[in-house]
Design a binder for these strands. Sequence first.
DNA 1: ATTTCGAATAGGAAATAACTATAGCAATCA
DNA 2: TGATTGCTATAGTTATTTCCTATTCGAAAT
Lengths: 294, 294
Amino acid sequence: MDIHQLRIFASVYRNRSFSKASEQLFISQPTISEHIKNLEKSLGCTLFDRLGRKIEPTGEADLIFPKALQLIEDLERINDLVLKSSQRVKGKLYIGASTIPGNYMLPVLAANFRNQYPEVSFEIVIADTRKITDMLVSHEFFLGIVGASMEPKILNYEPFLDDELVFAGTPKYMADMSNKPLKIHQVPFLLREEGSGTRKTMEDFLQKMQINLKKMNVVAVLGSTDAIKHAIKAGLGTSILSRRAIAEELANGSLLEIKLGEEMKRSFYLATHKKRTLPAQYKAFYDFLLARGE
Amino acid sequence: MDIHQLRIFASVYRNRSFSKASEQLFISQPTISEHIKNLEKSLGCTLFDRLGRKIEPTGEADLIFPKALQLIEDLERINDLVLKSSQRVKGKLYIGASTIPGNYMLPVLAANFRNQYPEVSFEIVIADTRKITDMLVSHEFFLGIVGASMEPKILNYEPFLDDELVFAGTPKYMADMSNKPLKIHQVPFLLREEGSGTRKTMEDFLQKMQINLKKMNVVAVLGSTDAIKHAIKAGLGTSILSRRAIAEELANGSLLEIKLGEEMKRSFYLATHKKRTLPAQYKAFYDFLLARGE
DNA sequence: ATTTCGAATAGGAAATAACTATAGCAATCA
DNA sequence: TGATTGCTATAGTTATTTCCTATTCGAAAT
């Protein structure tokens, strides 16, 4: 017994006729006959008494008819369900982000998104780009926001907002250097750990500027942008970090920046696993971020 | 989209594996793959992300799974429904019966049947055999109980209880005849109408006895056994009628019978339309009557 | 008695579902 | 790192099912 048979049964029942049903369903009358015959066989009962020119539904047919209708409708509802589910944006968004996006960009963007879709909630895990990338690869997140593309084979990267790194320190260090030839090799310098997107961008930049990282005066390697920032403010040294992280300090003059030739621009990326289908709320947030990012 | 696809989907979802599903359903793995592919196409969404060695259901799959289960179960319930409906004996029994069975046999049998199946109710229409037969042919009844078989082509007759006709009258008429040669031609005689099963049986019997009906002293043609009985008791004449109809009168001596050579036996028949399927309560009553009748 | 109407049957064509064999791909092992 | 394993996808066929046309059959209407 399958749905097709029930559809045919329902039409025959309604029309009280095999041939009318066949017109209605655009199927030949013998085909209708055969389907009804098979349905009767599988149910083990007669559904219509064939009375020459007329047919008459049996008690079993009366019994089955409403059930058949319901089943047919329920089956069609499944389609609607899928369609609606892709419209309904709700549920939890579990997102991995590296430091800068996680701390300085996502909070605002998430809040804006929630204004539009109040039924979503966020859980943002902050870790360095390496970690987030690994977690994406092992399907711990559907969506990550990272500072560099590290697994381009299996992950998909979509350029998102730009970020600018600046070379900054307390006025004590900076004042020394601002008018003189760059003494970046002597000034105490703070580094992010390996695996940090900031670190990678910085390395790429220094290489381009032909500055050798190994000859620099590295006084500490710290595990987060915030740690770097606090260390700088505490006078431990200088570093290269996101302008977004120290926007306030630059504004009030507690930290100063020095331009190092060209701008240290980098992109953040929306990273997703190529083989994963994004649930509706992720898809919506992804599209929302892309629209904001451009 | 059809149920078969949903069944396969459900198995894949539960097993989190195409190949395990294929073992469980005794279908080859490529067939599973194809069905899932078609289902995804018809729904317009991915149901499982293929992650190399694993698969992961998407949000849509999570959504559909319970609905699919329910549909599959509902479909199977239809079978049960049909099975149970044939067990559950209830509802109205609309039965056509000729005079004798309708008045003297069915009331008791129906009461007994109702003891067994309290959810049934009866509506018994009494008319002569001809009328009941016509109504069966035109599907006004599922079941009739008649005194003679009249449309053997389209109706099915099952011999039921026997009945005996007796020649009877008030002692006034009977006493005259009991010890002398039969004066049946002279004594006033009451007839049932054409179409009556009693009339037909009687005619057949008289013919066998070589008694010519036309030469008899017919004083009235009456439309029911009860009318005949009352006419006899009122002294209008004699008649041939069912022993069951006058059992009381014969017992208390208010009417007497005279044996006319051999016994005037006849059968009643359970009559059904050959092409009609009997609803459960009719089937049950039919079987009940047959069991009582033998 | 003939025609008409509607379902059943027969026989064959088209569509679908199934299989086997094999390729492809990621995870695991050596 | 390369080989192996475990699982799904694809290709090519075969089997089954569905559906069709033509026709027959049976009951009802003319």
